[in-house]
Design a protein around this nucleic acid. Structure first.
Lengths: 265, 265
DNA sequence: ATTGACTCTCCACTTAGGGGATAAGATAAA
DNA sequence: TTTATCTTATCCCCTAAGTGGAGAGTCAAT
């Protein structure tokens, strides 16, 4: 019979931990003095404790260990833990990759964030525009056309609308684009205006502040990030307008978000 | 100006998180109604928030992010986080390895635990014995010899003593062993009894219950584990006696611990 | 006036124990 | 026997980054 301190020495386990394991019902001292409350352990409990420690060593939770000791299926629990570990490792690896790229590049002016874009119901219109500056007209025209066949249509709050460039290459004239605007419900399609429900998708995103002149830098920065972090583009890129000439006078206050839908390569 | 719910939608961040970031001083709403307490955010705060989220995405703590925003050295903090990640990954990998080996072998009768053996001051004696059964005599004799030159020597409480086998090979006769016993302080060495302070060392350990007949199975199980989990033997193995013929009548109650000092290969 | 949607603050909860305060028991020295 | 030291007991608070919920106030529409 050993007192808790001696048993703690023997097993190289802290007293706090032993008391905690008793509270959790993992390892009950073989005798407790009802007068003083002193716990007493025996050497035969060292292998019991070793089992617990060995399971903790594999990262299993106290709850899991408890159910294993109560006769649950060890193999199943280990397989679950294995999956957990695999996701942990892949997460840590991608964080490490991100940090390493950042330390090499040493450019921290732009921040890329990965987020899950939810499902949206949108109306959209595709077309070819002569010049970038025609985008605004294209958008206004689309909105008008949609309103004409769907007079009660409502945009979501807060607003979500974007343009995708559909040419496979970079062009400065005759650009094929799609404009999409999220709405609260499906409407009646016309010849030019179609409706669609977007699937949720993970996207790498970046905010672009200011006028559109150097938007291309943001694109290339973001696409480099996607490449370096082991992703590939899953769907057309969305150029999302948050603040622009329609509500901000100063070009410096314009705000655009570039969203690149991604999947792990 | 957006209310918290709208800003939460815009940024894909939960309301709870936004309030928490305000409390932590990471992102203060651009306006708070002093009457109602309502928070109001502007689109210009989206990039601010993006910076925070991008740092969180790399696993940096709120505290670290706060100091980065206050102008701390980003590079240094990233390097620290990098180290953290590397240890995290190596820990998870070794847990995964352990689980995979277990799932393959499907033998869960024995539990291996890794622990840090502390520094001990020991007296020890080396010698050659004819047969395993002579170990007991060897030990008693060593204790007697030590007492004769060091009459006031005291063993540590609880006891720690072990035998190491010094032949490079497995032998059944003429076995060279070392017996070591932990004591509370250095003593005067004699011709046969020496003193030494052991360095702390990490060891893979297993308990062996019962008589010594099938001790070899425990050895081979433990050594297989060491091999499979990417370790190598760093020092002589310690066969540590906890319960034995000196205090337990029934052989079934004997308890021995095998400790293999290890290092990562 | 009421309803429903939204927001506020405050509190408890999550893991696996660690730190510390205070009181009582155990043991050895004086 | 008293005292001093060591050990143990219980109890409460703390961790990181939020999540969940209760109860109360706010806002716009009906």
């Amino acid at each position: 019979m050993y007192r808790i301190g001696e048993f703690s020495e023997l097993s190289k386990t802290t007293i706090k931990t032993l008391r905690y394991y008793e509270k959790e019902g993992l390892l009950i001292p073989s005798f407790v003095d009802s007068q003083t409350g002193y716990r007493f352990y025996e050497t035969s409990q060292l292998p019991e404790l070793a089992k617990i420690i060995s399971l903790r060593q594999m990262g299993l939770s106290i709850t899991n260990i408890k159910s294993i000791l109560n006769g649950s299926d060890l193999e199943q629990i280990l397989k679950l833990r294995k999956q957990e570990l695999e996701t942990e490792i892949s997460l840590s690896s991608s964080q490490l990759l991100q940090i390493n790229n950042l330390l090499e590049g040493k450019s921290m002016e732009k921040e890329v964030i990965v987020k899950e874009l939810p499902s949206y119901t949108v109306y959209y219109k595709e077309g070819v525009i002569k010049d970038f500056r025609d985008i605004v007209n294209f958008i206004l025209q689309s909105a008008g056309e949609c309103k004409s066949t769907n007079p009660n249509i409502k945009c979501v709050e807060p607003d979500y609308c974007y343009v995708s460039y559909l040419d496979g290459e970079y062009k400065e004239t005759d650009i094929k684009i799609r404009y999409a605007q999220a709405v609260t419900q499906m409407g009646i399609p016309s010849e030019t205006i179609k409706f669609e429900t977007l699937n949720p998708v993970k996207a790498a995103c970046i905010y672009h502040k200011g006028a559109y002149d150097n938007l291309r830098e943001s694109y290339s920065f973001l696409l480099k990030w996607v490449e370096e972090n082991g992703y590939e583009i899953a769907e057309p890129i969305r150029e999302r307008y948050i603040d622009g000439m329609w509500n901000k006078a100063s070009e410096d206050e314009w705000l655009t978000e570039i969203q690149v839908p991604i999947r792990k390569k």
